[in-house]
Design a protein around this nucleic acid. Structure first.
Length: 295
DNA sequence: ACTAGCCCCTGGGAGC
DNA sequence: TGCTCCCAGGGGCTAG
């Protein structure tokens, strides 16, 4: 489901709604989603902690937690939503493995796939819904989680000011792979997945198969500008809603209607009317205009 | 040290 | 209507 803009939307929502809340109880029915610590210890360790701040790193949601007496957070809960995960805020009732909504507008199917609930002291709940059960949850001390490869391996944040064109040029010069795959590799640049890599390359007029290190300076500049432009715009529009992305309020994002190539196979290119093509790259589909995107 | 390809899961949509 | 096949936004692991 989520790439950088979608995860940022969730993080912004959480920061508005749950800061200062204390976790009073935990419920889950798919223990394997909790990779760390042992699921049995998870509730014991996270109970009574207070939510300090929520951040994003790549596509990971980082919820910093503190003991009631602490000034600075010492614990960290990491949630990666992978393909179909959603974090939702609401109130649910769990009975005989059936989850029903008590309050709010989340009367959607998404409720059937709730596999983890954090109960908060203000009566609200944070729920993780995940149809395909690929999501990943890690919890531990701040130092412990921050030093895991899951976070250490992540490449630079594309929207940060300090991520400059020169950094981008250096990164691309080291990559012989197809530009499409390089953009989607979170170890090179974080937060870009299949949807936005298609949109970025379309805007930059670069063929997805072009090897990253063969792009000219001018082409690299186009890609760099497209990354900043498209991701920035998507964040402002609260993400894309292909099939089932939702904010924590269950409402879809607005970027889907701004998509120009993703899932537009056989539709005319907005620039030249040539039909958009779909091809496989690294097991995933790439959409592009065969006429205006140059190899 | 690379990469392609499979795998983790479940459901939706297309085609027969 | 129902069956089968293909597809899905992430990313870890393995075999070559």
């Amino acid at each position: 489901m989520p790439e950088l803009p979608e995860v940022q939307t969730i993080v912004d929502d959480l920061n508005k709604k749950i800061i200062g809340c204390k976790i009073t109880k935990v419920w889950f029915d798919v223990p394997k989603l909790i990779k760390k610590p042992n699921p049995k210890d998870f509730e014991k360790q996270i109970k009574d902690l207070k939510i300090s701040i929520v951040k994003r790193r790549g596509k990971n949601i980082l919820i910093y937690l503190k003991l009631p007496k602490e000034k600075k957070p010492s614990k960290l809960l990491l949630i990666h939503q992978k393909m179909t995960g959603h974090l939702l805020i609401g109130k649910w009732n769990v009975q005989n493995e059936v989850k029903s909504l008590i309050e709010g507008e989340l009367s959607e199917k998404v409720n059937n796939y709730i596999h983890l609930i954090l109960y908060l002291d203000n009566g609200q709940q944070i729920a993780l819904s995940d149809l395909r059960k690929f999501a990943k949850i890690l919890f531990g001390t701040k130092e412990e989680i921050e030093s895991l490869p899951d976070l250490m391996q992540i490449g630079p944040e594309p929207l940060e000011r300090k991520f400059m064109f020169s950094d981008f040029v250096n990164l691309m010069s080291l990559q012989k792979r197809k530009i499409k795959q390089v953009l989607m590799d979170f170890k090179v640049i974080s937060g870009i997945g299949n949807i936005y890599s298609d949109e970025i390359l379309y805007q930059a007029k670069i063929h997805p198969f072009k090897p990253a290190n063969k792009l000219t300076e001018k082409e690299l500049n186009e890609v760099f500008l497209a990354i900043k432009n498209i991701l920035g715009k998507a964040v402002r529009m609260r993400g894309t809603s292909i099939s089932d992305f939702r904010g924590t309020d269950g409402k879809p994002g607005n970027y889907a209607r701004a998509l120009l190539v993703y899932q537009k196979e056989d539709k005319p290119c907005k620039r030249c009317q040539t039909l958009i093509k779909r091809v496989k790259v690294g097991g995933r589909s790439a959409h592009y205009c065969p006429k205006c995107q140059k190899l």
